[in-house]
């Protein structure tokens, strides 16, 4: 018999000869009964829904990591007192500070606010808000681009350099880059203030201010911004903003030569496939590009 033949037998790995010999042995009958009886055994009941709920709760509370205390017990009391003082002052200090979340190039962040409103932050963007006073004042400051899913409740305000957006409970996208301010409303009603103007924006509408000019109102056919599904989308946007977006998404330095950066671009590019994105930008505009490491040069061929 081969080594561990009982395990092999259980796994149907014995040869026919071995199996025949094994079946003739006087122990075989008990082995067969053990396997038969053990097959009717069942493990403990596992309440997966409950476990899932406990896990979710824990994940919600979890902010810091637990560090094991060292075994020098007599110092613990002193250490605890000091820790308490520092802890209390740190707690007070951080609680009165505003929270800031920043993303770098080629990064995004998912933020859940205290009232369960969601913010999805696109690359090279920043939001700042006060966690402590959130429940009576929902104010958030944005640099860059973010998509908001606002829980119903008090007035929710997004402040940017380009303008202010106010809502009660809805889904909308705000993009504010240098010289460029765009708000798209996907659900509910948002109110947008920029300069001296105020516009009400119902679901399915978007507005854009480029270099101080209110440019277009266009309807949105999708139910969320294209960058959330891995695509950047443009409709009659000056080329320089398109290239800026490319740089933010892929963290690739963009330079240009002999190009008219104010020409308008309509189209989209993939946020996952660099090569495809380069093609999508260069082919319709008739320009060429050279990609070298972390740099790309867009240029027009001399006529």
């Amino acid at each position: 018999m081969q080594e561990n033949y009982l395990a092999k037998w259980l796994n149907n790995e014995l040869t026919e000869d071995e199996l025949a010999i094994f079946k003739k042995s006087k122990e075989y009958e008990t082995y067969r009964k053990i396997v038969e009886a053990s097959d009717s055994l069942a493990g403990p009941d596992f309440d997966m829904a409950n476990a899932q709920k406990r896990l979710d709760n824990k994940r919600q509370q979890k902010k810091g990591k637990v560090i094991a205390l060292n075994p020098l017990k007599r110092y613990l009391r002193i250490a605890a007192a000091i820790a308490l003082i520092f802890g209390a002052s740190f707690f007070y200090y951080t609680n009165t500070l505003d929270e800031t979340v920043t993303t770098q190039f080629a990064e995004r962040a998912n933020i859940i606010l205290p009232d369960a409103s969601k913010v999805l932050l696109n690359a090279d963007s920043q939001v700042t808000y006060s966690e402590k006073s959130w429940n009576h004042k929902r104010n958030i400051t944005l640099k860059g681009e973010a998509f908001f899913k606002v829980s119903k409740g008090e007035r929710f305000t997004v402040t940017t350099d380009g303008g202010t957006v106010t809502v009660l409970g809805t889904q909308f996208n705000v993009e504010n880059r240098k010289g460029f301010f765009e708000v798209s409303c996907y659900e509910g009603l948002v109110s947008v203030q920029f300069g001296q103007n105020e516009k009400k924006l119902p679901a399915g509408q978007a507005l854009m201010v480029v270099d101080g000019q209110l440019r277009t109102f266009e309807t949105i056919r999708r139910n969320k911004p294209s960058w959330l599904t891995g695509e950047s989308n443009f409709k009659s946007i000056p080329l320089k903003f398109v290239l800026d977006e490319f740089q933010r998404i892929f963290n690739i330095e963009v330079s240009t030569k002999n190009l008219d950066l104010s020409q308008l671009f309509t189209g989209s590019f993939s946020n996952t496939d660099k090569e495809l994105a380069l093609q999508s930008i260069s082919v319709p505009t008739g320009m060429k590009f050279k990609l070298k490491g972390n740099k790309v040069l867009f240029y027009a061929e001399e006529p």
């Binding site: 994940r59 993303t103 080629a106 859940i112």
Partner: peptide, 13 residues
């Protein structure tokens, strides 16, 4: 109460 995750773009899975 605030949960922040950093994501890498393009990492759907």
């Amino acid at each position: 109460m605030v949960k922040i995750q950093a994501l890498k773009i393009g990492d759907k899975n």
